[in-house]
Amino acid sequence: MVRLIGVYKSYDNGVRALKGVNLRIDDGEFVFLVGPSGSGKSTIVKLITAEIEPTEGKLMVNGFHLNDLRASKIPRMRRTLGIVFQDFRLIENKTVYENLTFAMRAVGASREEIKKRIPYVLELVGLDKKTRRLPHELSGGEQQRVAIARALVNNPSMIVADEPTGNLDPARSLEIMMLLERINSLGTTTLVVTHEKELVNRFSKRVVAIDNGRIVSDGMDGYYNYETM
């Protein structure tokens, strides 16, 4: 669940990245956030993950009021989120399995929980045969699956993916989007940031379009048409 109410964000260098954004994403929704490069998509993601603070406006994520959230409570909030990036961000000298273990250990999971959870998640993303591989032994699509598995491993209520297919060819991109759709169908709220028009238009999902720091369209028709505006 996400609420942005009248959110403004100016960076230290004076760039006004968001100019009054209102956005509501309910539990269980699948949302594409689209817009041209530099329109403010990643800024919204960073606000949701509490990496940055809004200059103005109210922010709520999975029941946490981020405006007055103490720094020591941020980890608790982040555990409700699974975050995926364009560049995968896997630990290069750890195997697929170790990368997932690392993410679970970091939030204090026990050995038993780890043993139970990881095989399930690896099967979900289709990597149950490659658990001992190192990241560089995998294709880009497979690496992004590992990153998605890592985002899921601590059972978050919401997945936030910032351009997850930005480094992948169209076929792999489609597979990743279908995987995210599948994860959403299992109950996880999903926010996918992208600027790939064809990809978005293959799904019939809610599409929120942002341009120059403002939401310019928000519809359930699944059609990505910001270029016409």
Partner: peptide, 16 residues
């Protein structure tokens, strides 16, 4: 630093 960034991302506490 990369491991630390990932730990923060998944919600590890500062003390951890």
């Amino acid at each position: 630093r990369e491991e630390i960034a990932i730990m923060k991302m998944v919600g590890a506490t500062n003390w951890f």
